[in-house]
């Protein structure tokens, strides 16, 4: 753990992520205006000392909305990845540990979900469930869990062949004991890396869906839906799109940078693992 904190890349990304989370949590205190406050006199104002990031088509302060927007994006990212992780790791460990027909079924199920390009699957599910933040999150979970299932299964298969695990089974340790005691600790590193990259990917995908109008509705401040609202005015008021997009990129970059740093720091051999995101 101390080794990890010596890594400059990890420190830097943690500082950025900490800043973003701080901004999201204390948006109410930090934001210069109220995000609901419309000022129709000052519509589409370019960045100025009053409005650092300018104002939107309803005269709302962009900086304020961007700060509140961090809440929705980070919440979606963390929530989707947590649920996906729980589902994926459970199924992956079961598949890898027991093998046989259970493995066969779980893996074919995973393959089937993976067969859909993620954006199409998410889009189709949101389309049929109906627009809105909860449905969008369900759709993203349907896409994201497969990543964890595959990583967890791979690592479990790997651990299973290790001498100490075989030995502990010979001396009569129960399956659940072996899974919790030996398998879980070994899959934590790759799963953590995937979680970090996954949060970035989910934020990106959620913003994409909201941008298309299928996710968070424009009434809630969210980066993707801000971009959607700004589309109409992109040539006359580019700041409407510039700042929320920049924030999305910074956040995703920070998560990816963190995941990348973790991968380098935690284990050399993991560089060979195929740890690419789903989106």
């Amino acid at each position: 753990m101390i080794e990890i904190l010596k890594n400059r890349q990890i420190i830097l990304s943690l500082i950025i992520l900490g800043g973003l989370i701080f901004m999201a949590v204390f948006a109410g205190v930090l934001a210069p205006y109220d995000y609901k406050e419309k000022d129709l006199q000052n519509r589409q104002q370019p960045p100025s000392s009053d409005h650092l990031f300018g104002t939107d088509h309803l005269g709302r302060d962009i900086l304020t909305m961007v700060m509140y927007g961090a809440r929705a994006s980070l919440f979606v990212g963390f929530a989707v990845v947590s649920v996906s992780l729980a589902i994926g790791v459970t199924l992956g460990v079961l598949a890898g540990y027991y093998g046989g027909w259970l493995d066969e079924i779980i893996m074919r199920l995973t393959d089937s979900f993976l067969a859909f390009p993620s954006m199409f699957l998410a889009l189709a599910i949101t389309a049929f469930l109906g627009q809105g933040m909860e449905n969008m999150m369900l759709a993203l979970i349907a896409v994201e869990w497969t990543v964890f299932a595959r990583v967890a299964r791979g690592s479990t298969l790997d651990v299973k062949t290790k001498g100490y695990v075989r030995a502990s089974r010979w001396v009569g340790a129960s399956n659940s004991y072996v899974m919790i005691k030996h398998v879980l600790p070994n899959i934590i590193s790759p799963v953590l890396i995937m979680a970090s990259i996954g949060i970035g990917n989910v934020i990106l995908a959620a913003a994409g869906l909201s941008f298309l109008g299928f996710g968070v509705q424009p009434s809630t401040p969210e980066w993707g839906s801000m971009l959607n609202a700004g589309r109409t005015y992109f040539s006359t008021a580019p700041w409407l799109m510039f700042f929320p997009g920049l924030l999305i990129m910074m956040t995703v970059l920070a998560f990816n940078y963190f995941g990348d740093g973790l991968r380098d720091a935690l284990d050399q051999k993991m560089k060979n693992l195929e740890l690419e995101g789903r989106f």
Binding site: G200, R231, F234, G245, L253, Y257, D260, G277
Partner: peptide, 22 residues
């Protein structure tokens, strides 16, 4: 490369339109 995977494509699209078209 990290930058490339992190950039939102919808945003990149508009930024490029603004630069190369507008």
């Amino acid at each position: 490369a990290l930058f490339g995977v992190s950039i939102p494509n919808f945003w990149q699209a508009y930024m490029m339109i603004i630069l190369f078209s507008v």
